[in-house]
Every structure is written in C-alpha cells, then in structure tokens.
Design a protein around this nucleic acid. Sequence first.
RNA 1: GGGCGCGUAGCUCAGUUGGCAGAGCAGCGGACUCUUAAUCCGCCGGUCGAAGGUUCGAAUCCUUCCGCGCUCACCA
Length: 594
Amino acid sequence: MSERALTAQEPRVGHEGVARPRLRVRAAQARRGAGRHAWRETADRLRQPDPLLHVAPPAAREGSPHEHGGGQRGRRAAGRSRSLHPCHTRPQRSGGTRAGVSDREQEVRRQRLAALREAGVDPFPPRTGPRTPVADVRERFDDKSAEELEQLAESVAVCGRILAQRSFGKLVFVTLVEEGVRLQVSARKQEMDPDVFRFVKKLDVGDFARFAGPVWRTQKGELSVDVREVQLLAKSLRPLPEKWHGLKDVEARYRQRYLDLIVNEEARRIAVIRSSTLRAMRSFLDARGFLEVETPVLQPLYGGAAALPFTTHHNTYDQQLYLRISDELYLKRLVTGGLDRVYEIAHNFRNEGISKKHNPEFTMMECYQAYADYREMMELTEAMFCEIARQVCGDTKVEYQGASIDFTPPWPRIEMTRAIEEATGIDVLEAGELSSLRAAMRGKGLDLGSAPTWGKLVDDLFGDHVEPEMVQPTFVIDYPWELSPLAKRSPDNPRLVERFEAFVAGMELGNAFSELNDPDDQRQRLEAQAGDAADGDEEAHPLDEDYIRALEHGLPPTGGLGVGVDRLVMVLADAPNIREVILFPHLRPEVEGS
RNA sequence: GGGCGCGUAGCUCAGUUGGCAGAGCAGCGGACUCUUAAUCCGCCGGUCGAAGGUUCGAAUCCUUCCGCGCUCACCA
C-alpha cells in the first residue's frame, strides 16, 4: 500500500475535487502547487513505520466510506451550526466567510485536508496513542544538561497544538503547546526518515499533532523533542491570530474566547484562577459540614433579591416562569427541612444593566447555617475569603489594580448609617422619611436622583459616597430594615436589621444577615414591599405565600451569606472588568447588515 | 438611554490638506542545520462596519444605522 502511494505519479489527485470555482486563475494555480505538495506529504505519511503512528490503510477504510466521510461532513455541518450561536446571525467580522486572505488561507488548508483523506490519512483520527504530557516532559528534563540528556537518550511522545514553525531547510523547529505549557520540537532531516521530515514541514500552525522521539537540548540550549515519528491529531482549517501581538480586539476576545485562550496567556490564567477559586470555596464549605445542593433555576415566583427577572414559559403546563434572581428562598426552605448547613454555587439572572461589575448572568455562592447569626457569618466570611486567597494566590494579601488588599481577619466593621454620616454628614435615621431625607440631601447640595422610596435613596447615598471608598475588606453592618426585607430586626434598634455587606476593592462581594424567621413579620415586610412596588419600585419583592408557609412550619435561627463569585475572582485575578472573568460574557448580538 | 472614542487585509496597526489602499506578522513559491517575533528573495491578499449625501474625486467631510470600548445614568 505504502509503495503504491509513494510511487504515485498523479499529484493532481485530491485537489481538483475541492477547487472553488469563484477563485481566480492565479489563485487556482497557486493552489495546484500547494495541492501537489499536500499529496506528496500525505504519501510520505503513509510510510511511517512506527506502530504507534498506526494509520489504517485505505483498503481497510473502504469498508465504511460513508460512515467515515459522511461522519466528517456531518460533524463539520454540526460544528457550523453550533458556531452560529443565536447571537451570531451573520459570520464573524474576523474569520468570516467573505472573500479575502483568510478564505485563501483556509483554501490551502482544505486542500491539504482533502489530500490527506485522499491518501487514506484521517485528519481527525479517533485515538491519540501513548503520550507524555508536555508539562511532565518539562518537569523531568528541564534541569538536565545536554550531556545528561544524551546519556539518557530517552524517547517520549508529546501532543499539542502547533503554535509556530521555524524552518531552516533541513532543520525545522516547531513550538508545541499543551495545557498552556510550551515545548520545542526539532526535526532534523539527517536524523530521520526524509518523508517524515517533509510531513513535519507541511504541518500548519494551529494543527494538533503527536511527535515522538528522543529528548535533547539544541546547540542554543533549548529543550526539545527530536522528531522521529509524527501523527496528525487534528487539522486546523483557520489561521491563528498574530503570534507576537496576539488577539487584542476586545470584542473578538469575548466572542471567540477560544482564540483568546490559545494566544493570550492572561485568558488562561484567569480561567484557571476562577476554577481554583471555586474549588477552594467548595473545599472550605465542605470541611465545615455544608451540604452542596441544587435548587430550581426556573421559578414560578422570583425572590431573594431586589432585581428584575427574565421571564420564560413552560409549554406543557402553560406556565409563566422566571429565571431565578436568587436561590435564597429555596435554600432557607431546605434549612426548614433540617438540612442545617447548605450551600449552592448558582447562576443567577438579573434583567438589568451591564457594567464592568454586572453581567446579566452571574455566579453567586449562597450558604445558610442553622443556629448562626450574622456575626458568626462575618467570621465565616473572613475566614473563607482569607483561605481562598491563600489557596488561589498563595497569600492572604493580593494586588488589585495597584492596591494591596489584605484579607487577614478580622476586617473592620462599620455601621451603615454611620458610614453614610461620615461620608455625607447626613443622619439617615434622623431624616427618616423620603421627604426629609431629600431635604437633607438638598441641604448638602447632593444629587437626589430618582429613588422612589426612602430605602432606595439611602441605598443610593451609600452606593455613591461610601462603597467606592471601601478598598480594604470591610464589613458594613446594621442596615435600615426598609432595605432588607429578609433580615431579622436588631433587638437593640427596631429600625435596623442584623445584616452586613462585605466590601472589597470598592465592590460588594458579600451580603449576609440573621435570617428573618418570624413568618408574620416576614409577611408584613413583603407586603410593605408590595406597597413600594405601588410607589414605583419595580424591583420590590413579590409575596411568596409558599415561602411564608415554610416559615410558619418553623425556620431555626439561621445565618445566611451570599458571595459574588465573579467579583471575587476579579479581585483574585486582578481583573478590572467582570467580562474578563466570565468566559462567555453577555454581548449584544451581531446583526445581519450591520 | 446620554456623552466621548473606535471600526482599514486572517491578526496587529499606519494612512498627511479630500487626489492610485499601505506596513509588519500570517499565507504561498524559493534559499537556508540552531531558531525560539529566525533571516533573505519573490508573490498573493481589501465591501476601508453598513446605507445615503456633499464633491470632478471620499478610508478621509456630512447624515442615519450597526457593533465595540470608556463614561454617566441604570444596576446588590
């Protein structure tokens, strides 16, 4: 079989069939040249003697040509339709299908793809074969000298994506990357089968391949795998972004995050930090006896936060549903049911504005602990953030946007009303009505905004004048009850509730209270919210009778905490925008004709 | 939603007073056994975001629209 392929005198085979009629003559000629070489390297490929690099001969494949080719086509078609995300109603500006360089670059690669298939080489083989992770190779041999490596004469097989290729005629260097770790592969014509050598030269940047051969050090001292055998693992049909400048276009980085991850180390670093953060958080809570649970995303009534929901509909039940804005009310039902310590790391959905701190879909960890109050939740919060920082960043101090942030407990506590008074000179409890507070603010020359209720106005004051100043981790405690319909009243001052928010880097990262477990008080508070709704506060909570019923069965004294996971990751990763820590942030759709 | 800015080759970017659309990288062909942003020679590559307008002539000026960013508003 391989002999037949090697002696084939029909270099045109394999490219006529894929020529695109819209290409001009000169381009077609260029392609013909490329196709010939593609054919030749494919023939070379068939000669590989290494059993590790097993390639089924064409004869063996003829039994299932439909399954094979059809499967590939089907997969490509599926891939295309998947790439047409609902938001992407036209091809991407970058890498789109309109005529241009990319088109012809893809054309060349499709030529090679076709030539490989023609020669019976699967460009997307189902199995990889034995391999050593690149990171392991580096770990084992990075500290070995050239002489030591020569004595060891150890062969490995490494796999990864080709990031760059530097060719010197009879010597080729390939930069391979796997899991973010790079390794150089060298191919010396003198040291290997010349057909394999040619095959290496014709691999494209972006291809996945497996290289087998001894580990050595080049004259310039670079650790390399000296290729003896090669196997194409997956063909890449589109060019990678520029190797030096990378992918900078912010929109392209968000829309095609996979490219961002390939060429920008920062994207990978943040993804890893996010994963580590979640792992550290789970391990912290698990170690304290919390049970991880899952509660509905589709809820018949939304609640647990002041926010507007997304609405949706269930066809079979003809039921109006909301995507959850919070899982709070469900988690407290579970505590009522005797699951005394529960947590959920949940995606919440809020139909509101987008900013560098807000994505419509975001991740919140909420945990509830029976028999605890908000002071114990403060201690839990401090300990958790500190431990997560240590696990993720290796230190309880982290750099965020030029500021050093120290998570070491205890964090300072300050009463909310005192914080506002210190910042603005206004005692919001004294100015305890919407009208008097507005008057007080007017007296200080402050912007009144459009807050419809006293509580909202206090919240605005706090957000404008206090929140941005809280760079070091700080607990703001004891909120006016109007702001917190789910928190228990303070025994010392009935106008306040036992609530705290944790602020870091000017952002709210945590929110907690001694949970309100008096069903009658809860009902009154939610009814007051209904009044606020009538006053124009469209975020006021609807009344959830089923939740009240659960409280009537008895909720133990419970401390609850919510943590904005995305924002926590921002701080730990030193990312200035929430979109950097969400792999696929919400973007406006690209529209046909734009 | 308002204000400001941006949108030019697959990627990163130039483009002068309104006067032939440019570079580097990538790609293709060639040379090359030590590169790691390889180098050298040659070549290919454009709906200048879209539509309309002004003009002898528009990437450039005007209008509208689309997308992105920053910012304000909104927003746990």
